[in-house]
Simulated scan of single mutants.
Amino acid sequence: HKDEVRAHARRLGLAVADKAESQEICFVGAQGYAERVEAIAGLATDGSLGGDIVDQAGRKLGSHPGVHHFTVGQRRGLGLASPQPLYVTHIDASRRLVYVGPRAALQAATLQLQEVMWSHRPPADEAEVVVQQRHRDPGTAAHLQLLPHHGVQLMLGQPVAAAAPGQAAVLYAHPQGGAGTNPQDHIVLGGGVVRSRPRLPLAPAAAVAYA
């Protein structure tokens, strides 16, 4: 527990005992994420990496300076005028396209994980698990199917939003096989990296409301 760690640090006279917690990537600092990526990867900053911001049908809504400025689920900083909030729903880096849409377009009913590593042994195929994809995520019940090459398919009990490819996800199982979804009540089975998240189809009204 954090409080106990801080108490030990104070007892040992460590200067970091009362240091504020960092909820972000601490080494980025005031430079900003995009600028840090440009510096590390040696990316051009002359606008040559720019592309289009498009809606779910591929219609151009605006332009952007580079896909590394965006992440799935992002709402702010899009530079678009719309009668309703727009979110980044998908990024096609190879074509330099940033897709945006209503919040409903972020919802996914299934997830595929790759590079899955198990803490002990893989669970039985068709097992019932809980998946957590963010630190403060309350957890979502899911039906698990084992896939070849260290992959799993998760059929979610309820849709989740903004699960981006490359994002980590942790799988839990209740020690007594209970049905609760709070990760704190479960034991860790393992984890993997989100490979894909087939999106739920948009209702026609939602699909055109921001056009």
Rank of each mutant, 00 (worst) to 15 (best):
V54E: 07
R134K: 15
V116A: 10
H1D: 13
Q56N: 05
G77L: 11
P138Q: 14
A211K: 11
P85H: 05
P85G: 02
G62R: 08
L111C: 06
A39S: 10
Y33V: 09
C26Y: 08
A203F: 03
D3T: 10
H68K: 00
Q107H: 07
L202W: 04
E126F: 04
G58M: 06
P198W: 01
R95E: 14
S63K: 10
P85E: 04
V129A: 07
E126G: 02
A109L: 01
T110I: 00
A207S: 13
Q56P: 00
E24N: 08
L78T: 03
G66E: 03
P65C: 04
G151E: 07
R103I: 01
G77T: 06
P138Y: 14
Q132C: 13
Q158I: 01
K19C: 07
R95G: 10
A81C: 14
V54P: 05
A207I: 02
G79V: 09
A173E: 03
A141G: 11
F27G: 10
Q74E: 07
Q184F: 05
V208E: 14
S63H: 08
I91R: 00
A44C: 11
G77R: 06
P65Q: 02
L146C: 09
A81V: 14
I25C: 13
G50N: 12
L106E: 04
A15S: 14
L154K: 01
P204A: 14
A162Y: 04
G157Q: 11
S119I: 12
I53T: 03
A162R: 09
V28I: 15
S22M: 13
P102M: 02
H150F: 01
Q31M: 09
A209G: 05
G192C: 05
T181P: 02
T110L: 00
H186G: 02
R75L: 13
A169H: 06
R96M: 09
R6A: 09
P122M: 01
D52W: 01
L156W: 08
G73W: 02
A179G: 08
L61E: 01
Q133I: 13
I91L: 03
A9R: 15
A127Q: 04
G191N: 11
G77K: 06
A57R: 14
D18S: 13
V208F: 10
L202C: 02
F70E: 02
A209P: 01
H8L: 15
Q74R: 08
A206M: 12
A205L: 04
G58R: 13
V152P: 04
F70W: 07
R11V: 09
S94G: 01
A207L: 06
E24L: 11
L86P: 02
Q107G: 02
E126L: 03
V16E: 14
A207E: 12
V72P: 00
Q133K: 07
L144D: 00
H1Y: 07
S196T: 06
R195P: 00
I25D: 14
Q84M: 14
L156M: 09
V54R: 10
P165L: 03
L80D: 06
S63D: 09
